[in-house]
């Protein structure tokens, strides 16, 4: 067992979970337009059971990112997800603040 990570620090959590043998995906905000709740570089870490720490928005799109992350944990193929205003996008969720974000989701391999 490794030491307890700081749960407010997604990268520490990701390393600890991965070292403990859990399958882990890391989501990162890579672009924002307009009003976006979390700045570029923000992280969300997800494990294969859907446990998560961190954030890529104010809670608006985390559910969709987690669902995608489960597939990426299986396939190992990274993916860029884009979220816009709720009713202007093909995604079933969106940002109520009117901004748009792109989120890169990758598996931690090791």
């Amino acid at each position: 067992m490794s030491k307890e990570p700081n749960i407010l620090d997604p990268l520490e959590v990701a390393e600890t979970w991965s070292s403990d043998g859990r399958k882990v995906a890391l989501a990162t905000v890579i672009e924002t337009w307009g009003s976006a709740p979390r700045p570029i570089g923000s992280h969300l870490v997800i494990d294969e059971e859907g446990n998560f720490q961190g954030s890529v928005s104010g809670g608006c799109v985390e559910g969709a990112v987690i669902a995608e992350a489960m597939e990426i944990i299986d396939s190992g193929t990274p993916k860029v997800l884009e979220f816009g205003v709720a009713d202007e996008t093909a995604w079933r969720v969106g940002l109520s603040c009117g901004g748009r974000i792109r989120v890169y989701v990758e598996r931690i391999d090791g």
């Binding site: 990268l11 890579i30 860029v80 890169y104 931690i108």
Partner: peptide, 26 residues
């Protein structure tokens, strides 16, 4: 991302050393 890359990022942060991560999105 390889776990070793993640470990290198966290080690730099713990040592209070600035780090840049370059990811090729393709």
């Amino acid at each position: 991302m390889e776990r070793s890359t993640l470990q290198a990022i966290n080690a730099a942060r713990a040592a209070r050393r600035a780090a840049v991560v370059v990811t090729d999105l393709s």
